[in-house]
Write a protein that binds this DNA or RNA. Sequence first.
DNA 1: AACCCTTTTTGATAAATGTCACAGTTTGCA
DNA 2: TGCAAACTGTGACATTTATCAAAAAGGGTT
Lengths: 192, 192
Amino acid sequence: MNNLLLNHIARHVTLDLSEQELLFNILILKKLNKNQYLLKEGDICKYDYFVIQGGVRQYEVDKNGKELIIHFGFEDWWISDKASLWNETPSIYNIEALEDTSVLQVKKEHLEKLFSLSPKLEHYFHLVLQQTFAIWQNKILFLQKPAEERYRLFREMYGHIEQRISQQYVASYLGITRETLSRLRSQMFKKR
Amino acid sequence: MNNLLLNHIARHVTLDLSEQELLFNILILKKLNKNQYLLKEGDICKYDYFVIQGGVRQYEVDKNGKELIIHFGFEDWWISDKASLWNETPSIYNIEALEDTSVLQVKKEHLEKLFSLSPKLEHYFHLVLQQTFAIWQNKILFLQKPAEERYRLFREMYGHIEQRISQQYVASYLGITRETLSRLRSQMFKKR
DNA sequence: AACCCTTTTTGATAAATGTCACAGTTTGCA
DNA sequence: TGCAAACTGTGACATTTATCAAAAAGGGTT
């Protein structure tokens, strides 16, 4: 069950047994039902989460009450509100399970202690953040492109999980309305 | 001249003298004239840069030849294409000086060696990346808002340097045309 | 001051996307 | 199996923003 995380780590650094132990001592398995929350707007994010099964969406509710999804987290992803986690400020995000989901959770303070005990593990988290950063950087470019291209790019990146996400959530992630996505799709699939 | 960097570091970690020396041995001061490039599209980004004077813009050229600015870097900022730097892939970005600019440059390999020698310095870079990440995360939300609100938010964040950036670049950063920004401004300043 | 070059503003029009209302479709569950 | 609730599709229309063209305003240099 934790093999997913061990493999993920092994792709970046080689831990010795004592380090593995250090890490696994602070991990807690958490199970969520569909529509349960990992984080609610206004709370301070206290944990980093690694998704081992299922999926979540991370979204903001804007002042008109509209939900803007900024990120999905599926198997093999670390997810949290980094800004809230590291600065201990109230989060503007909600993180909600899209399906029944299992995550490994690790508390911020434990993570900090971990980093001071094992530079290699800090290195791992640093590498993961670099990767995550690159993905988010892409999303910025992506949002400046026309709707159809965004949807194409989305399918390139997330095609393998598209059917696990309802269309309205895909639309929200793309930054368009569900109507626009619906029209886009019927056009695209008519063409060929 | 390097005090800016020392202060920046001191806000995050406390280095001992040997670590300071390690770091300063691998820093190179680089001066750029206005319109010179730190990075060109297609090249692999080999350095991380810390701006000590002046400012740069980081932009993509899309397939229609339009420039999309995704980030500015002014004094006290680390800038580079992280994706290209860490994955050694060709960059899609250009980084160009907006004015005469001085940066401290550090080579990727030196940085990696540095991290293995000094966990504290890796910790510093990790913290900086966390901060940078939070800012970019904000930009994603920001791009989903209407043009006027984007401009307001921009002024909140970058008000102190707005007059150092030409309006067309501000518009490009906001993801709108210069005409739209111009109209936006005349409206906003008429109102009050 | 006169010139050139770049940037900004303005107007007319077009294109993309949003909004609202409602119909059709799917899904889960009693 | 059938019903209610949630999701998706479609049409008419509104709004936002882009595009193109040209005029006005700035800035730097001689």
